[in-house]
Design a protein around this nucleic acid. Structure first.
Lengths: 110, 110
DNA sequence: AGCTTGCGCAAGCCATGACTAACGCAAGGT
DNA sequence: ACCTTGCGTTAGTCATGGCTTGCGCAAGCT
């Protein structure tokens, strides 16, 4: 867990990324989320547990309530992951450009 | 299509993000990918079509072959998406800090 | 023309997982 | 002590979708 791939796998579910965006505005409980989303509280609770075991969110018991918040470390991990993707993409382009400097009209302008 | 959420939804499948990482090294055909991954060429082809319709990859016909490559725009979109998440997270922390400047030991060091 | 290669498409099977309903439990409040 | 509230958990249903097999098609070579 807590690697970027498993985080992305968890966020692949549309309801979970909706929950994440909602939690980014402010921490909330399962009941509050269920009131704003078209699923039952049980479904929310299950999603939250999945997200928690992946390290996406953290829960804080507060009396009888249980507040969930986004874990910033997970966001940082995702950010750096796609940053690396982006850099690798640029590198691939550079390598392709070196292999074939002027692939179009190799003889130059006639 | 071509919004960050649908891109993430597509990458939620482990095989597809594996394909993406492989394609980042170098463009490849469905057959080449199938030789390196533990699924049939048909499965690869279906994944590539899903990724293509989401805007993640682009295909270039080359004779009888068909070369797939990662679309850099999609990577840029994902990058900026999680950048925004990160910034929103920081903003949330600042707002929480303003609401309760010193939530621990409000009376100061005794 | 005939053969080969590379590819997408369609049908069907099957496991994954998202969801609901019902239950049990802890924490306060009256 | 007795509700009430807020949660997590379990059992069970059902749709989604990933995978394979088999087929048809287009492009290029001999």
């Amino acid at each position: 867990m807590t690697n970027a791939r498993s985080l992305i796998e968890v966020l692949g579910e549309p309801m979970r990324i909706t929950i994440l965006e909602r939690l980014l505005d402010a921490p909330a409980t399962a009941t509050e989320l269920a009131q704003q989303l078209p699923v039952t509280r049980s479904a929310i609770s299950q999603h939250l547990q999945t997200m928690k075991s992946a390290g996406l969110v953290a829960d804080t018991p507060a009396g009888t309530r249980r507040v969930y918040a986004v874990d910033p470390d997970a966001l940082a991990l995702l950010r750096s992951y796609f940053d690396a993707f982006w850099n690798r993409s640029l590198e691939g382009f550079r390598r392709a450009a070196e292999t074939a400097p002027t692939p179009i009209r190799p003889g130059g302008t006639p």
